[in-house]
Computed example of a mutant assay.
Amino acid sequence: MSKSSAKEWDRAAPSTSWTRLACIIPPDLLAAVAREADADQREALLETMQLDQSFRVSRAEAAASIIAPTRTGVARVGAGTPDRAIYDQQHSNATTPGTLMRSEGQGPVSDVSVNQAYDNFGYTYKLYWDQFHRDSIDDQGMQIQGLVHFGTNYDNAFWDGAGHMFFGDGDGQMLTDTTKGIDVVGHELTHGVTQHEANLRYSGQSGALNESVSDVFGSLVKQYQLGQDAATADWLIGADIVGPQLAPALRSMKAPGTANQYDNQPSTMDGYVHTTSDNGGVHTNSGIPNHAFYLIATAIGGNAWEAAGQIWYDTLADPRLHPTATFSRFAGLTLRSARTRFGSSSSEAAAVKSGWEAVKVKVR
């Protein structure tokens, strides 16, 4: 790396000031790849990092302003059907919607990315509606807007906290077209669900829980759409969007730390990473609750979106789940949810307790 390139990377490298931008690719990973990249790819990565940084303040403000929706008990007209709108950003960095390409109910268009975003939004809505009777991100029928072809070789995808999901096309080495990932879309839209329910603070253990909840439901969206049970699912996150540098996936819930050459996620509290980077290691330490969910879902067996997914959703919607929740507090609430729904002596409750104990999180 040249001296000038090194200085550019240093200016764009992640710091503790990069808060609450919940992208699918964490800043630490972008920085690690940038260190080893050739000049062309480094330029794309630097631009990605700078764009991500530019969103941090607006997303933080959006997250802070969220008020939980009022439950009227009356379903809106059209509940059970998503409201999707997909826009083409034409490789610009514009943060407002570009050209409208496909609206709810319209047929496929010639742009594959538009169709993939539209379909994957639908799969995410379907899981939440069919299994948890949730009407979109805010449970009030919020329109879901997808902005595809964002930036030039943009190596990320994210939910902006205000109704828009941005999709980069990737540089072909680190990432490919991010609209392809069912679980990626499920992950990002779940950040919106979490924002409207528990609003978990995006720092430390609560931030790692925020990331983990998104991985959990992203994986469940994929499993639900593909008809995979807990035993046959691959439990990988982002396998459909990674390029050769990150193959075979971004993260593994089954075996954290093994998804790609840069994966340093711990699977138990023995490996918990204490760091000031990435808001206290939110993408790294999320491997611990991710692994707990995998262990619990496979111990219960069957379809993970049924018992295990219901327990996690009940917990996310529990008013006792505070924005600064620790792993231990979240674990205790999942056990409470399991006992409430399935019974104190149920196999589901036993699986929850054992799963958290296996990753060395105290259940309180």
Rank of each mutant, 00 (worst) to 15 (best):
A247V: 06
Q265N: 13
N210Q: 12
D10R: 14
A22P: 13
G73K: 02
K222Y: 12
L333V: 03
A247W: 12
R59A: 04
S113C: 02
E36R: 13
E211Y: 09
T95P: 10
A230C: 04
G80P: 02
V109A: 04
H149C: 11
N260C: 07
G80T: 01
E348I: 08
Q106S: 11
T275A: 10
Q245N: 12
S277F: 09
E104M: 10
E61V: 14
V352Y: 01
L209I: 06
T268G: 04
S92F: 02
L21D: 12
A79D: 12
S5V: 07
P97M: 07
L321Q: 02
S354D: 11
D139W: 05
A39Y: 02
N303A: 09
L200K: 04
T298S: 12
I288K: 02
I182E: 13
F150M: 06
L30N: 01
N285H: 06
Q53V: 10
H164S: 10
H91K: 04
D10P: 00
A233W: 04
A117C: 15
G287R: 09
T275G: 12
N290E: 14
A13K: 14
V148W: 07
N279L: 07
Q145A: 12
V221W: 00
D234V: 02
S110T: 11
L220D: 02
E43H: 10
G122Q: 00
T72L: 04
I288A: 05
L246T: 10
L333T: 01
M49L: 02
F167I: 11
D160G: 06
D28R: 08
G141P: 08
V184Y: 00
V361W: 07
G141D: 03
D229K: 08
P256R: 09
G281N: 08
S15C: 15
S54A: 14
Y154I: 03
S214H: 10
A60S: 15
P244M: 06
N285E: 11
A231C: 06
A37S: 15
